[in-house]
Write a protein that binds this DNA or RNA. Structure first.
Length: 874
RNA sequence: GCGGGAUUAGCUCAGUGGUAGAGCGUCUCCUUUACACGGAGAGGGUCGGGGGUUCGAAUCCCUCAUCCCGCACCA
């Protein structure tokens, strides 16, 4: 072994070099070979709106961990990358840029604008790829896709036409969520509700030919200009005789009918009278239809009042109109009172603008027939969602699902493949029919585009070439796992399941892992306005990708993932540890992996059997945890093994032999061989979590494979399990810890050495302690170890793991503090013993508890008794 | 209103019936030839309150409290 590691861990020195090597060698690119067992996963395509943030880093890291794990485990593995055109969001970003340049979308015109967006896309898709590369994401870039590219657009048209032909897409006039800022309709899931301190305005509506007035309450007084009715509950005695009469709408002075509606009106709320504005409220819209009330649009698409609102209001913004309406009502004596009122206001999640419910002609997907099989697929376990608690949320939403508004009045997106002729005929077709099939008139394509999620919903199969039956579709579809944020369960996951089942007849994936939301170290959501956003690239530049990835993996469980800079730095210490431990190992190893023969287990000493057994246990744990998406468990298992068992104990225990202070030349060779073995297996085990540092080191070990990323992933082997070695080494560790403890308590320094007496319980144990006395001497810093025989008086005696020991200190320096500590220790032990005594005296316990538990209690009782006896002597 | 989740050490979180755990932080000692991004130790919790089931409850059940997240509604 000639190659050595540099004395300092410097990730920048090798990370980019290694990634280029992997990509060049084609390790990311699988062959569409149906003979091999495959594993496939598609990326949740990031929006091309901008750079990736730390939340992306999390979801990408988790995917890469699974992907690398599966690849090393022998699967023909595909991780398919790509980006999403993100209709509204991207259009907004580009428009914002145009405004800065002093121009606008409208000024530029449709074609020029779209061209600009494509430029934007090109730049950001490149940036995103760079970021993923720096994270170490092992995506197959030869298969990179974009939702708006040619083939994926073809798939979108195909699905649209099919759904239309099947009667599941319809175009209709309906109440939709309108975003005046973006100038488009949006779907229900895109509406966020914000709690807001508003006002509840109580307004008097006079009744025709009567002195009575009806008091209604509203949070949006400006909509009263569009009122076409007033509703009361049919069973409400207070208003019985008014039903069918007319009220006079203040300001507008219109007659509006008083109707009875049991659905709209809650008798208990307010005065029990509701104004009805069918054109600007979803419930009122339906009530209007039920009661045959006219519709009257007083607010336009730009959120300004229309001419119908009256000359003095026309053209006013809805908020200004509100003030003016209130002012006018007050002047005319109709405003009864104004109360503070906490309520929820629907806003567009993308731009935070208040949604204006509006009647509009839009395209919809009839969703129930799609939802049913999608519910069933999760219900019967075809698709499993992790953590499982999300399944309840999925069912809750899917079972109450509403038709999906899919048309958007945008310029950036898939244009709806519908063609209209001047006679009002509409043709839906894959390609432009040129002339109307019904009347022969020339047709024009619909200008509306589709909701972005319509194309994302096809992602797992459109990216593989569907609807064509390509080799990739045959080999890699359906995919196996999907990893994404829980916030897009409805937007994306549910829709992929619906489309996948409908069009491919297969669930698009079998396992879904929903990760949490990354927050800052104070638990605050990251946002640019708060300035607490972390750019993953900054972190990678600071501490390396491996430290970032490991931190993310350790914290991956939980709904909220608090992540600050300090937290990330903590795990860079671990990477540094790996580097240095490997450096130490490589200073001693003198053969490479290819030349190293297999290990003869019969020759192994207990120490070596122990570390291999512990590594085997960690290996088993990691594989098990990854299967269950327990990234925290998996990463902690490696962390604990590598640091606290391999570094803290094994390396220290191997030193006397490696440095020639103990054992034969054969022992030394064996120790080196085992050191190489443990390092090799550890690096392979770690690789999915820390791809860079592991390969940088592993490549120098001279393995058979060209990179650790294509070396086999370790699996637990029964032959490595060694409970006996574990038990004895545990005793050794306990004794060492006890001596260190006693030394520190008595105020000695590590330089002070003592004599130790150890009493094995049988010959076998005694022989063991004689053979391994050197470990105790080295690690507990002793002068000598005497096995067997009675310890002299005046020594500090104790019992640990059933082994009686005694430490001979030069003199009895017993401080007051030490005395009290011993006293506390005795009290604690006595208390525990007492409770154990009670427990064991309890027949119910002895009768009902499993034998193992009873035995444990008895053993503990025996040990405590012996220990107390010793402690009291000291 | 419907549904889901949380409440465990100063902080962040594991722990689904058998003597309370980790990481980080805190304190003490140590520059021992891989690592001070280190080593060796220490302190710290009546597992949100109350009740129940059980030989035994952080863990199962009931109840209360506080917080969070969906969905729906809020005139």
């Amino acid at each position: 072994m000639k190659e050595e590691l540099s004395t300092r861990y410097e990730p920048s020195a090798f990370e980019q070099k290694l990634y280029a090597f992997w990509e060049r060698e084609g390790f990311f690119t699988p062959v569409a070979d149906r003979e091999k067992p495959k594993f496939s996963i598609v990326i949740p395509p990031p929006n091309v709106t901008g750079r990736l943030h730390i939340g992306h880093a999390l979801v990408m890291t988790l995917q890469d961990i699974i992907t690398r794990w599966k690849r090393m485990s022998g699967f023909n593995t595909l991780w398919l990358p790509g980006t999403d055109h993100a209709g509204i969001a991207t259009q907004m970003m580009v428009e914002r840029e145009l405004i800065k340049e002093g121009t606008s979308r409208v000024e530029l015109g449709h074609d020029k604008f779209v061209e600009r967006v494509w430029q934007w896309k090109a730049q950001h898709a490149t940036e995103i790829k760079d970021q993923l590369t720096r994270l170490g994401a092992s995506c197959d870039w030869t298969r990179e896709r974009f939702t708006l590219e040619e083939h994926l657009s073809y798939a979108v048209r195909y699905v649209f036409v099919k759904l239309y032909e099947d009667g599941l897409i319809y175009r209709d006039l309906a109440m939709v969520n309108w975003c005046p800022q973006c100038g488009t309709a949006i779907s229900d899931v895109e509406v966020d509700f914000r709690e807001r301190n508003g006002k509840l305005y109580h307004i008097a509506y006079p009744i025709e030919d009567s002195d009575r007035r009806l008091i209604i309450a509203t949070t949006r007084p400006e909509t009263m200009l569009g009122d076409t009715g007033v509703a009361v509950h049919p069973d409400d005695e207070r208003y019985q005789e008014l039903i069918g009469k007319f009220a006079i709408l203040p300001i507008a002075n219109r007659r509006i009918r008083i109707v009875a509606d049991p659905i709209l009106v809650d008798r208990e709320f307010g005065t029990g009278v509701v104004k009805v504005t069918p054109s600007h409220d979803k419930n009122d819209y339906e009530a209007g239809l039920r009661n045959n009330l006219p519709q009257m649009q007083v607010i336009g698409e730009d959120a300004r009042m229309t001419a119908a609102a009256g000359a003095e209001f026309a053209g006013l913004d809805r908020m200004d109109a509100r003030k003016k309406v209130v002012q006018t009502l007050k002047e005319q004596g109709f405003l009864v009172k104004v109360e503070d009122h906490l309520h929820n206001v629907g806003v567009h999640g993308r731009c935070d603008t208040d949604i204006e419910p509006m009647i509009s002609r839009q395209w919809f997907v009839k969703i129930a027939p799609l939802a049913e099989p999608a519910i069933e697929a999760v219900r019967n376990g075809t698709i499993r969602i992790f953590p499982q608690a999300w399944e309840a949320t999925y069912f809750n939403w899917m079972e109450n699902i509403h038709d999906w508004t899919i048309s958007r009045q945008l310029w950036w997106g898939h244009r709806i493949p519908a063609y209209h002729c001047p006679n009002g005929h509409t043709t839906v077709a894959m390609d432009d029919p040129g002339k109307c099939p019904q009347c022969g008139e020339p047709v024009k394509q619909e200008t509306d585009v589709l909701d972005t999620w319509f194309s994302s919903g096809l992602w797992p199969f459109s990216t593989m070439g569907w609807p064509d039956n390509t080799p990739d579709v045959q080999t890699f579809y359906p995919t196996d796992t999907l990893i994404t944020g829980f916030d897009i369960l409805f937007f994306w996951v549910a829709r992929m399941i619906m489309f996948g089942l409908r069009f491919t007849g297969k669930a698009p994936f079998t396992q879904v892992f929903l990760n949490g939301l990354v927050r800052d170290e104070y638990g605050e959501k990251m946002s640019k306005t708060k300035g607490n956003v972390i750019d993953p690239l900054d972190v990678v530049n600071e501490v390396g990708a491996d430290a970032l990835r490991f931190t993310l993996a350790v914290n991956a469980s939980g709904r909220d993932i608090p992540l600050g800079r300090s937290r990330i730095q903590g795990y860079s210490a671990f990477v540094n540890k790996i580097w240095n431990a490997s450096r130490f190992a490589m200073m001693h190893i003198d053969t490479d992996l290819r030349a190293a023969g297999s290990i003869d287990r019969d020759q192994l000493h207990t120490v070596e059997r122990w570390i291999l057994s512990r590594l085997n246990e960690a290996t088993s744990q990691v594989n098990k945890s990854l299967s269950a998406f327990r990234f925290d468990e998996a990463s902690n298992a490696i962390y604990a093994f590598f640091w606290h068992e391999f570094c803290d104990w094994y390396i220290e225990m191997a030193k006397p032999v490696l440095l020639g202070k103990h054992g034969s030349e054969d022992d030394r060779r064996l120790a080196k061989r085992v050191l190489l073995e443990v390092l090799d297996r550890s690096l392979r085990l770690l690789h999915p979590f820390m791809p860079f540092v592991t390969d940088e080191i592993w490549l120098k070990l001279g393995g058979h494979e060209p990179s650790v990323m294509v070396a086999p992933y370790p699996v637990a082997e029964d032959v490595l399990e060694d409970p006996d070695a574990e038990r004895m080494m545990h005793a050794v560790q306990s004794i060492i810890t006890l001596v260190r403890n006693a030394r520190a308590e008595r105020g000695f320094t590590p330089k002070d050495r003592f004599k130790l007496y150890v009493h094995g319980n049988d010959d076998r144990e005694s022989n063991f302690f004689r053979d391994y006395a050197y470990l105790l001497i080295e690690l507990a810093r002793l002068t000598e170890v005497i096995v067997g025989g009675e310890p002299p008086a005046g020594t500090q005696q104790d019992v640990v793991d059933g082994i009686h020991i005694a430490i001979e200190f030069p003199e009895k320096v017993i401080s007051q503090e030490q005395l009290e500590r011993t006293k506390r220790e005795i009290e604690k032990s006595e208390k525990e013993l007492a409770s154990l005594d009670t427990k064991l005296a309890n027949e119910q316990f002895v009768k009902n508890a499993p034998a193992r538990v009873v035995q444990q209690a008895q053993a503990r009782q025996t040990e405590l008794r012996a220990r107390l006896e010793k402690l009291k002597q000291n």
